[in-house]
Design a protein around this nucleic acid. Sequence first.
DNA 1: ATTTTTCAGAATATCAAAATTTTGAGGGAG
DNA 2: CTCCCTCAAAATTTTGATATTCTGAAAAAT
Lengths: 223, 223
Amino acid sequence: MPDTRLGTPEIYADLQHRLLTGGFAPGAKLMPSALHTEYGCSANTVRDVLLQLSKIGLVEFEIQRGFRARNVSIQKRAEIARFRVLLEQEGAVASMCNGGLEWESALAAAHHRLMHIEKQFARTQDTIPFVGIWSDAELAFHRTLLSECRLPPLQETFDNVYMQFRQQMVGLESNCVPSYFHRIIQEHQAIVDAATAKDEAALRSAIQNHQARHTERDVSATR
Amino acid sequence: MPDTRLGTPEIYADLQHRLLTGGFAPGAKLMPSALHTEYGCSANTVRDVLLQLSKIGLVEFEIQRGFRARNVSIQKRAEIARFRVLLEQEGAVASMCNGGLEWESALAAAHHRLMHIEKQFARTQDTIPFVGIWSDAELAFHRTLLSECRLPPLQETFDNVYMQFRQQMVGLESNCVPSYFHRIIQEHQAIVDAATAKDEAALRSAIQNHQARHTERDVSATR
DNA sequence: ATTTTTCAGAATATCAAAATTTTGAGGGAG
DNA sequence: CTCCCTCAAAATTTTGATATTCTGAAAAAT
């Protein structure tokens, strides 16, 4: 798409964005030899970027077999969602214990910003360009939630899992219903309330409920 | 070291092994242009392998600044250890709930194999060649512990974290005292006992105790 | 004396082409 | 009809060379 000469970071960002917004069909082959013309660079450069993207789980890499956009399935989304809940519960509880007033304030600020975007969202029909900025704001909110947990490895893992989860979402549901966002606003509010009240059990429940739609175990699937 | 022509998987395995056994000083620069002669391949091939190793956290990669063996510190080891405990507790408890007799048996088998190696270990002075096989057996034991948790993302993350933890260990303590292994045998036994007894609280404690030496928070470090 | 600039050496990123491997279709043998 | 073998097209990996960027020390300026 872009016609100017791009550096590796730009190619990385663009490919990540496409992966996260349905720019590639799930499981689609990602061929450096095909993509390099789009970015006006060599195939090897695309290969490097794809290798880096496989690091965060958005791209599957198999030796001698190239790259693919990660496959999606209800089962896989459920596994990722349950792992995400696990990480977020532990991280949020730790943040709640460590974090002081400045953490609560940051959380309130992130939530306010997110609500503002979500309200704009509900008013607009043209949802496509909004998913990107909404997702950034939601990620910022959840990052703030974990920001004081003092476990960098958990935070890094959460970032990856969050993006993998998002990839599963857009791969499985191409359209976003507006009522969906109403529920999400309430769920975020419950998280903020529990964190502010320093109620560990409530915080865990709120985080669990936030993903309840996706964590149900699918007994029919044989994986 | 090897004089025959090596494929990428062999180079990957060898570099991983060196990273995990102190073959590189912590923070040491890993230059494709220097390593490619050792493996009889081009610098770019080494670069690819290092990119893949950075995926599991053993190698740090910064754009335009190359690769480094990951740095070690008491602080970093503590963070990794605490994250490891968290993952292992959740994974083991889930495995205990899901796993049946075949899981208990597999766990007992992995533990028996590990004990056998540990006893040989205590008898030998020449510890260096043993650390590799002991570590493989210990990893197998902990993998078995999580094998029935039905959370593939957690299992993958645990593998990475386990290796990062090992890297911190060998980077911080070059010598392994034999008494160290006596304690570890008992700690593993406690994990097996709790899992067999289906005692969730005891299992969590046993896993926590297994890393207790490393999870202490270092208040003096300002990170 | 401290800071800034310059400059060569070294290391990294990128490239286009060659070598290797995989894939899939077509043709024979059982 | 099925299975296996062969072979050519396509894709991936590797290579060696080129271009860009970084590093550190010496020189110049404040």
